[in-house]
Amino acid sequence: MVGASHYLILSTVVFSIGVIGVLTRRNVIIIFMSIELMLNAVNLNLVAFSDHLQDLSGQVFAVFVITVAAAEAAVGLGIVICLFRNKETVNVDEIDLMRG
């Protein structure tokens, strides 16, 4: 029998893989993809609780998370294009415009 705890541990593992991606990679696009992975792990959590508690609110919140992820991807990739046009790089180590 697969209970809610199985889904929670799976989403924990996927979330942590996303965190490792954000912390270790240099390419800003791959960092964005790691963030998408983390948001999806949160969705898995919400749907698992929705299934466990027999309450559909969790699924509605998962839809909202997908909406916010779409908005975030659009704006974030706009920033990446803007940055690439001005600095010719997508390496986070070389992006230090705000350093004092």
Partner: peptide
């Protein structure tokens, strides 16, 4: 990867 990738992986 970034210079401190080992620290990042351990923290993850």
């Amino acid at each position: 990867t970034v210079r401190q990738w080992k620290t990042g992986a351990v923290l993850g």
